[in-house]
Simulated scan of single mutants.
Amino acid sequence: MVEIKTPEQIATMRRAGLVVAAIHEATRAAAVPGATTKDLDEIAAKVIADHGAKPNFLGYGGFPGNICTSVNDVVVHGIPDRKTVLKDGDIIAIDAGAIVDGWHGDAAFTCLVGTGHAPELAELSRVTEESMWAGIAAFRKGNRLEDISKAVEGYIRRQPRPASGRYGIVEDYGGHGIGTEMHMDPHLLNYVTKKRGRGIKLIPGVCLAIEPMVTLGTPRTHVMDDEWTVKSDDGSWSSHWEHTIALTEDGPLVLTAPDGGRAKLAEYGITAAPDPAA
């Protein structure tokens, strides 16, 4: 069952999304050499509390952090701690969420730490982010779920190969429905497979978290002994980008983007839906 939201419910999800955007702004500024991932988690906790929201990651299935902090070859679900100290040249994906009046927001971004990073890391992050926006642009009334998967994969496949030889589109994790829970139907792959068919028809009221995860090598991953941290099988570094988006009668609204996605959607000739928070 796919949860269909009313305009009023989407407006509440927008409030949750703006809390997530505030977490991103604060943690991005703090992701500097010498900071620990626990420092970032504490900053996120303060932002959530200051907005009168609740964390949706903390305690989820036993997860011990307010955010996920995935450094270098950690693809997703990295646990914040005092031991992991960011170094110049690192790459970190910060995945954050918040709950407002029972409705969820969820988004991730990739940050390059310091100035000493390899050029292919900046390109990896760019390719991953732009593939997410290609997927968002395909999130339109009358399309089907697979159209989003096709857009994400197609963008990545069209890019020049990195020095490592390929971009790996992570196979075991993907996007999802979101609303009264953080993870809901439908599951959204970042690539096309004939086994899944074309998926649900996209109609107003559907809300999705679109989140490509891409490595500089293998698409395959494994879970560490902590039962959360997911690493690439070959040790290749990775990038993760995500936004929560609502489909409305007036088009898409990117709930976790400060401007509702207006600027990026305009690059695709798409007008973002009116922002209830404006």
Rank of each mutant, 00 (worst) to 15 (best):
E3T: 10
I23D: 02
G34M: 11
A35Q: 09
K38S: 14
E42R: 15
K46F: 00
A49I: 05
P55Y: 13
L58R: 15
Y60S: 12
G62W: 03
F63C: 07
P64N: 07
P64T: 06
G65P: 12
N72Y: 00
D73P: 10
I79D: 03
K83D: 15
D90K: 07
I91S: 01
A96F: 03
V100F: 05
W103D: 02
D106F: 14
G114T: 10
G114V: 06
H117P: 00
L121E: 07
E123S: 13
L124P: 00
S125F: 00
R126P: 05
V127I: 13
E130Y: 11
M132D: 00
W133E: 06
W133L: 09
G135P: 04
A138H: 09
D147W: 03
S149K: 14
K150S: 14
V152I: 15
Y155K: 02
Y155C: 04
I156A: 06
P160N: 12
P162N: 09
A163K: 15
G165L: 14
V170M: 04
I178G: 06
D185L: 12
H187N: 04
N190R: 00
T193E: 13
K194W: 02
K195S: 13
R196A: 14
G197F: 04
L208R: 11
I210W: 08
G217I: 11
P219D: 04
P219V: 02
M224F: 02
D226R: 10
E227D: 12
V230A: 10
T248S: 04
T256R: 07
T256E: 07
P258G: 04
L265V: 10
A266P: 06
E267F: 10
E267A: 15
I270T: 11
I270E: 10
P274E: 08
D275P: 07
